[in-house]
Design a protein around this nucleic acid. Structure first.
Lengths: 242, 242
DNA sequence: CGCGGTGTTGAAAATTGTCAATAATTGTGG
DNA sequence: CCACAATTATTGACAATTTTCAACACCGCG
């Protein structure tokens, strides 16, 4: 028998991700009322899907650990990765419109999510303006993020895309307490290429070139940024593009 | 003195766009309660902005007439068009997250919008589940639309992009009672190119090629689809991509 | 220790962008 | 209503970037 009852472990107010996740920005009293929202967690094994295109939409999911990719199939069997999602980020909002998920969410490593039944989310949003506001913010932020990806796909060359991608990952990892200059990619070159609108060969070549230029150290999936000057230059580029 | 008081003219329940716009899917009683939401309309002259990046976010806007583009500036002064918006579509959702608009909304022809003060929208959403649901749907649909654009930018070649773009416009025009095979482009080649991640020259060349292949008739900004077989083929492509 | 998946690299081909010249159209003011 | 200026669009030649196809290397794991 554990010291805390199982339900306590699901409380948002006690979660170390609370400032990055659903309850971010909520007053203490509102946050307490969120604690009833999450009634279950779900573990997802590497390469398994949290949901697939066509699955009925019933809940939003908050990533608790692990990384996911969202991807759509296109006609030729080619897959488009529309995003990568790490701890504290919310998945599943594309499903609200049609009550069906329109893409797959696949774990890139063993992962766990908090299940937020959407009916309960809506109920809370009606009762607690702070929750309503936060839900709107999360959806709006997803729209803004997508616009950033469009900017990347429409206007940047391969090298800029890869650099922006790496800096974006580093920034998000740093917000989660990891290094801001070093990371282990959890996704394949294929996945990166699909997300960036490039072939896997171009991604590989671009990483090699950045390494040859002395800006990165690349060892398989372990990346380290070496030149902080270049980093700042890229960062400006990324900021301007967002 | 007009037969109907001015306020009546702003009623969603009496609007011919109601099935495409905010009230779509609402029960009659709920729709009646929406009628108090819109307290003003705003006209926007061609080339003028409904809002600009950095403007405080206060309202969502429903396009009543005319066409808008949304666009972001990037570092080099280059502009990225993130979407085109026609009657019944909702603008401004990117502003919710930060309480600031993150892009410009510019009228491509003289236009009019219904102003939906966001506080009032939120209030209604708390009181009327149908309105809440519709608001969520509209935001979700924007996310799904953005994923479709990412698909286009990441995986399609110039000819496919242009064809998808034209078919998408035709589909939306048809839903509004216009021809499904003929249209007048309200945006420049530059705007189309920016949206599709192509140069204006490539857009122009691609239209010329499609015309030379006998699939389109292109006269300046007037386009007509000739080959319905090709149309169906493209349509499948577009559907698969979305 | 070999095998499958993953990543790297090269060379040639395809696509798109760039630069430049010209044409057509639209808007404006006389 | 016409003519001119400004904007917008078309087209060509060439260059740059990225993809494609192919060969090979590396890693982790049974």
């Amino acid at each position: 028998m554990s010291a805390t009852p199982p339900r306590m472990q699901l409380a948002c107010s006690a979660c170390n991700l609370r400032d990055l996740c659903m309850p971010s920005g909520l007053a203490a009293a509102d946050m307490a009322r969120l604690d009833g929202l999450i009634t279950s967690r779900r573990t997802v094994k590497r390469r398994a899907a949290l949901y697939r295109r066509g699955d009925p939409f019933t809940a939003l999911y908050a990533v608790r650990s692990g990384i996911f990719k969202s991807c759509q199939q296109s006609e030729g069997g080619a897959e488009l990765v529309t995003g990568f999602h790490m701890a504290g980020e919310i998945l599943g909002m594309e499903g609200i419109d049609q009550d069906l998920h329109t893409c797959d969410a696949v774990a890139l490593e063993d992962a766990e999510v908090c299940v937020m039944p959407f009916d309960a989310v809506c109920q809370l949003a009606r009762e607690i303006p702070g929750v309503q506001r936060q839900l709107h913010r999360i959806m709006s932020r997803e729209i803004v993020r997508d616009h950033g990806v469009m900017q990347l796909l429409a206007n940047m060359r391969a090298e800029e895309r890869v650099a922006s991608f790496l800096l974006n990952l580093l920034q998000r990892l740093q917000a989660r307490g990891f290094s801001g200059s070093e990371l282990v990619l959890r996704m394949s070159r294929q996945d990166i290429g699909s997300f960036l609108g490039l072939t896997l060969e171009t991604v590989s070549r671009t990483l090699s070139k950045l390494a040859a230029d002395g800006l990165l150290e690349v060892q398989h999936r372990h990346i380290r940024i070496l030149d902080s000057e270049a980093r700042r230059r890229w960062q400006r580029q990324l900021d301007a593009a967002t």
